[in-house]
């Protein structure tokens, strides 16, 4: 599904190498987690994959089902089936949440040469999905993320994911700023989307989210590289001993 090979990335503005050769392959139907200390390059990886400005790929490749992601505009990546749940969802005053979701869904459908969804069908779809995530009608009417609590913003990300039904979902620190209940709700939303055709890459600093979204593979990232991979037990090791021991061991 998502295939990353030898990916090296530096900041555009300054001569600073962030990713120093990342290799990663997320198969359809699998959940991979990336853990790592702050500054290890986890979020940069998610931004580069989704096409944010400010980064320069100096080597390596990233493909989604064989298609070269790095050659695509952000909206083309989305239409190809890539989804990034933002660590900090952006507030957009003046754009209603519903308008936003409908524009996004129809833009993607159009790009894939599928028929656009009518207003009525869209409403039906959104209501059903919102209900599962305990998102009320009021929240759908408000401008995108404006005045939303941390938990509401993250639930809104998962709602977008549920509506857009991407093939490959990247969750960037989705647990940050969430209390236990909110985290459970978000995790349930994600788990509901797990199926054989969809891949997940869960980026997180802490192990606790992985209690709820149980990964198939856990990678430890440090200094721009994946330094260790293993099963869910690797996450627990981090929880018990911190990154220091693990990284010391690798070094």
């Amino acid at each position: 599904m998502l295939d990353i090979k030898g990916l090296e990335v530096k900041l555009e503005e300054e001569d600073k190498q962030i990713l120093k050769g990342v290799d990663l392959n997320v198969e359809a139907g699998k959940v991979h987690a990336i853990m790592g200390p702050n500054g290890s390059g986890k979020s940069t990886l998610s931004y580069v994959l989704s096409g944010r400005d400010g980064y320069e790929v100096t080597a390596g490749s990233a493909t989604l089902e064989g298609a070269d992601l790095l050659e695509m505009e952000p909206e083309e990546r989305a239409a190809a089936g890539l989804f990034l749940a933002f660590q900090y969802p952006v507030e957009i005053p003046g754009v209603g949440n519903m308008t936003f979701l409908r524009s996004a869904l129809n833009a993607q459908r159009k790009a894939r040469e599928e028929e656009e969804l009518s207003a009525a069908d869209f409403l039906k779809l959104i209501r059903a999905k919102a209900k599962d995530l305990k998102i009320d009608a009021e929240m759908l009417k408000r401008p995108v993320n404006v005045g939303f609590s941390g938990g509401e913003k993250k639930r809104n990300e998962i709602l977008q994911m549920a509506v857009l039904e991407p093939k490959m979902c990247i969750l960037d620190e989705t647990d940050s700023g969430l209390d236990v209940d909110a985290m459970k709700l978000v995790a349930d939303g994600v788990n509901a989307l797990r199926d054989a055709g969809r891949g997940f890459l869960v980026i997180t600093h802490y192990q606790r989210l992985l209690d709820h979204i149980v990964p198939d593979v856990v990678h430890i990232m440090a200094d721009g590289r994946i330094v260790k991979s293993g099963g869910p037990e690797l996450a627990r090791e981090v929880e018990e001993n911190g990154y220091g021991d693990l990284l010391g061991e690798v070094a």
Partner: peptide, 14 residues
């Protein structure tokens, strides 16, 4: 707002 623009594009809006 570049952040808002990217957020919309990341959701598939041209």
């Amino acid at each position: 707002d570049e952040d808002a623009l990217f957020y919309l594009r990341a959701r598939g809006v041209s």
